Amino acid sequence: MTVEGQSHGAVGMNMNSARMAFDKVYREDRLDVSARGGRGLTLVREIALLHHGQVGLESEIVKGTKVMLSLPSAA
């Protein structure tokens, strides 16, 4: 099963920020970033790993961010 989520109206992330987006305490340090953010992507990654799945992220400044979560089918 694969689930994708796309941000709408978000600013997106640069490559360095996208690489660190799943880190527990990472928060992008930009003036135009809203108060949102925190541990959400860390939790998504932990859930994926616990269920032998994968998680990925694509992001571009101005265009936004897409997160993909893929979990194996139940036997």
Rank of each mutant, 00 (worst) to 15 (best):
R27Y: 01
R30A: 08
L31Y: 05
V67T: 11
V25L: 07
Q54W: 00
S70C: 05
T2Q: 15
A35K: 12
P72V: 12
E46D: 14
V25W: 03
V62Q: 15
D29T: 05
D23G: 08
R19W: 04
L49Q: 12
T65E: 04
F22H: 07
V44G: 03
G64V: 06
A48L: 11
L41D: 04
E46W: 06
V67A: 15
G56N: 08
G38R: 08
I61S: 09
I61K: 13
L31I: 02
M20R: 15
D29C: 13
G38C: 09
Q6M: 02
V55N: 01
I47V: 14
V44L: 15
L71K: 11
R39W: 02
G40F: 03
Q54K: 10
M68L: 15
R19D: 07
R36V: 10
L49N: 11
Y26K: 06
M68H: 09
V67Q: 10
L71N: 15
T65R: 11
L49F: 10
R36H: 07
S7C: 06
T42K: 14
L41Q: 02
R30W: 01
R30L: 09
P72C: 13
F22W: 09
R19P: 00
M20K: 12
F22A: 05
K66T: 15
V25F: 05
G5P: 00
D29A: 14
R45D: 03
T42W: 14
I61H: 06
G9S: 07
A74E: 06
A35V: 02
S73A: 14
L31M: 03
L57K: 02
D29W: 10
M1R: 10
G37I: 02
A35G: 12
P72T: 10
H8C: 04
S70Y: 01
Q6V: 03
L57W: 00
G9F: 01
M1G: 11
L41A: 06
G12F: 08
D23R: 08
G56E: 06
K24F: 06
L31T: 01
H52S: 14
V25T: 07
S34I: 04
N16T: 13
A74S: 12
I47W: 00
K24S: 06
I61Y: 04
G56S: 13
L31Q: 03
L69M: 09
V67K: 14
L41V: 04
A18N: 01
A21E: 05
M1A: 13
V3G: 07
G5F: 11
S59N: 05
R36Q: 14
A75E: 13
V11L: 11
P72K: 14
R39K: 15
E28Y: 00
Q54T: 04
M68R: 15
G9W: 01
R27H: 08
R19V: 02
N14C: 13
M20G: 01
G5Y: 09
R19I: 03
L50G: 15
L50R: 13
F22L: 08
T2A: 09
A21S: 12
V11A: 11
S17P: 00
E46C: 06
M68T: 15
T2L: 09
M13Q: 10
L49V: 11
V3F: 13
L57R: 03
S59A: 04
S59D: 02
L69I: 06
M15V: 05
V62N: 15
G64K: 14
V67N: 14
R45C: 05
E28F: 02
T2V: 10
E60M: 10
L31N: 01
